[in-house]
């Protein structure tokens, strides 16, 4: 183990993110040269004719939004209870369950969605087909729930105990102590958890791909969550194999990847801005 080896591995890992960015930019140049902003705001995607990314951007955003709508209240509520209400043994159990469940592969959620949840959604809302934005969002919500919960819990739990004691000594009740003395200090960590959960939901491919319906169109009306749609990741997952690394189709997929990369990096940057330096799952 000599320093030169350390230096090389260091160079590899610190440059990888940059290399991927360069790859994405250079790969998507042809599409932006040909279509410009049309690519981002175009609503049509027909291989060999025209490429527009808006439906996929829309799908990714909506699906992520639904997922957060589920994972945030449940995850943060559970984190508060785990850190502040239950005893030490129960906390250990809940934490372990969440940490283990955070690793359940996306494909498992995809399968559950494909074979069960789509049917439930279809029957529950009387739809023709259960493959829709709502189903994908629900699955993603459950999928990122453990991540959001366990990272938020970390942030809440590290708030030093003397703040709680001080607040209690002033006569505050448990819920007031949590809301006014504990949570304000845990906010950077909780935001970090939210951002990390969001990036995971955005980038998830298979769990979405199997249940979103894979229709490259913005639903009509646009707030119709029961309509089939398409997300960036699922679009790439569906078509990457066909495009075999050359031609405008490939460039369009790489450009989609660049957009996704931009969305995710913005969030990562925001997470760092709020002072989050947590561990990874």
């Amino acid at each position: 183990m000599t320093p030169w080896f350390l230096g090389i591995s260091f160079l590899i890992s610190s440059s990888l993110a940059g290399i991927i960015l360069v790859f994405l930019i250079s790969g998507s140049l042809p599409i932006f040269e040909k279509y410009g902003w049309e690519f981002i705001f175009g609503e049509e995607w027909y291989v060999g004719e025209t490429y527009g990314a808006l439906p996929m951007i829309y799908g990714t955003t909506v699906v992520t939004g639904i997922a957060l709508g589920i994972a945030l209240p449940l995850g943060i509520g559970t984190a508060v209870v785990t850190s502040e209400v239950v005893g030490r043994r129960m906390r250990y159990i809940l934490k372990s369950v969440m940490e283990i469940m955070a690793g359940v592969p996306g494909i498992v959620y995809g399968l559950l969605g494909m074979l069960l949840v789509t049917t439930w959604i279809r029957d529950l809302f009387g739809l023709v087909d259960g493959n829709c934005l709502l189903t994908a969002g629900l699955l993603l919500g459950v999928m990122i729930l453990p991540t959001v919960m366990t990272l938020s819990e970390d942030a809440i739990h590290v708030v030093p105990n003397f703040y709680r004691e001080q607040a209690y000594a002033l006569g505050l009740q448990t819920h007031e102590v949590i809301i006014y003395a504990v949570l304000p200090q845990a906010i950077p960590g909780i935001l970090g958890a939210i951002f990390l959960g969001t990036t995971r939901a955005m980038g998830e491919t298979v769990a979405v791909m199997l249940v979103i319906g894979s229709l490259d169109r913005i639903p009509d009306p646009f707030y119709n969550l029961f309509a089939p749609a398409q997300s960036i990741a699922s679009k790439i997952g569906r078509e990457a194999a066909e495009s075999i690394g050359v031609g405008l189709h490939w460039n369009a997929l790489v450009a989609l990847g660049l957009i996704l990369f931009g969305m995710v990096m913005t969030l990562t940057w925001l997470a760092e801005r709020v002072g989050w330096t947590g561990r990874l799952q």
Partner: peptide, 28 residues
Amino acid sequence: SRLRQDIGMVFQKPCLFPTSIYENVLFG
């Protein structure tokens, strides 16, 4: 809660919440 409002307490280490001086005085 009422009891503790009646009985103020100061700890060994000063324990201030990460807000302004004004907010800290008025916290309770």
